[in-house]
Design a protein around this nucleic acid. Structure first.
Lengths: 264, 264
DNA sequence: GAAACTATGTACAAAATCGTTCTCTATTAA
DNA sequence: TTAATAGAGAACGATTTTGTACATAGTTTC
């Protein structure tokens, strides 16, 4: 990891890290670091988006409504991304989805108006954000295909791996109840499948926590969607311009911190 | 319908119609009208996109791969849209999906390089296209949610209505085989459900053709997803600037041509 | 007009998922 | 310490979807 500029906290967000330092310096005064607390709603569905959030840590979930009290997840945002993409795409945009915090963390927040001004001024920012929109489309589309064709075990494995990659941890603070909600299935169904994974030694669960024990094993359980989306992320988001700050590739050959003392 | 400028064919594409006539005139030399033939592939998955297509007539389907010979539809493009959105979002973009022609028609084609140049020159074009990307995200996300939560009958009804709206016709040239492919389900399943709809008098089928008999009835069968996506399309794509050319709102209260002589 | 092909209708057992309900246990609150 | 609550495991039949197979009816080809 490169050390931060003196006096300034290090930036972890992949989009911001991809900006030329000159541009970043000019944007900096408008980026306010805010904590993200559990269940916090960053924007509601069909409501105006008043801030965008460059994720620094934690995990945010985007959901679409499938009728009465049935929300299904259509995207996950970690430090590679931005919550509030609607602002990029349309003046006075109201949100397509609901965005809420799944795993607490922090983000750099910017007012939507300021963000729009910044977009027209900085090509680097525009490029980085549009690139991220591209990735989000891949993610959502693959989610659609996966929901149509793949069984619960494969989808659950995919979701666990993808989420853990987003927060760069082998431990996921998440109840089965919530998981079922995100996948659009029954809670009891998740219970059965998760137990299967546990008895195969791939994960370990305890009330509201899921711990990865065997990454390779879980990847073998997941459907191709996992690999497709992760590879897309690497291709789309890990651009040459980020080289100067170093690159992180998770999920392929990068050992995550702490994986060893969790094994067994 | 407004009459076209003398000597020029009328433009039907919603994005192009939304452009100021001055901008459109400058783009015109780079827009080449091309026919779209059945099953034509406009771009393959993970291949470079060399042209973008502003749809004029017909229907193009975007699919994502869910493994071995399993493609699932994640979006439909009619004359409201553009095929090749990847070019907007990323320099040297390779396609996320496969795009192929479901219902023959025509489009205005433009070279990707030219399109990129045009985007940086014309704010109106950039706005219109990004707006469309926004709608595509809504569509794909709703598809993901729908695939997760809703049963085959609802999804089939949704698909039929949405497709017919896209081509502005009550008749859809489409086999059950193909339908099943798009929805990611068994062909026999579609057969049973479609028969149900037919015996309820909502549609009529004959080899490779589906005819809408009772729009209101079919809308009642469809899940909320249909309404959500159509409403989004109206909100996002039917912008004030299109007023000067007249606006079309399908699916809500607009009687489609020929609906009467098909009834009964 | 016969043959070949394509699209559709139908059937049946196997599997997956669902909705529901009931425990049991770990954690939290009083 | 006790009571209340939330998370997880398990069981039930009901429903949906699957995989597979075969029959029938339009359509095209020769």
């Amino acid at each position: 990891m490169p050390s931060p500029a003196p006096g300034l906290p290090e930036i972890r967000n992949v989009i911001l890290r991809g900006l030329p330092s000159k541009d970043l310096a000019m944007l900096r005064p408008h980026l306010h670091s805010v904590p993200l607390v559990m269940r916090q709603v960053l924007h509601a569905a069909s409501a105006p988006i008043d801030h965008v959030y460059f994720m620094e840590e934690g995990l945010t979930s985007l959901t679409a409504s499938a009728g009465e009290a049935a929300e299904v997840e259509v995207g996950l945002v970690g430090r590679e991304g931005l919550v509030g993409t609607g602002v990029l795409l349309m003046t006075g945009a109201t949100a397509v989805h609901r965005a809420f915090v799944q795993v607490p963390g922090s983000a750099y927040r910017m007012q939507s108006g300021t963000f729009r001004d910044a977009l027209s001024q900085f090509e680097s920012l525009r490029d980085g954000c549009l690139r991220y929109v591209h990735f989000m489309m891949v993610q959502t589309a693959q989610c659609a295909a996966c929901n149509a064709r793949h069984g619960l075990p494969e989808r659950l494995a995919r979701w666990l791996l993808f989420s853990m990659n987003r927060i760069e941890s082998d431990e996921l603070p998440m109840t089965q109840e919530f998981l079922s909600y995100m996948l659009g299935v029954r809670r009891a169904g998740v219970s059965v499948v998760a137990n299967g994974l546990q008895s195969e030694g791939l994960i370990r669960q305890s009330r509201g926590r899921i711990i990865l024990l065997d990454r390779a094993g879980l990847e073998a359980k997941a459907c191709v969607c996992y690999r497709l989306v992760e590879d897309s992320r690497a291709r789309i988001m890990e651009v040459p311009s980020e080289h100067k700050l170093g690159t992180v590739q998770y999920g392929r050959d990068c050992a995550l911190s702490g994986i060893d003392n969790l094994r067994s």
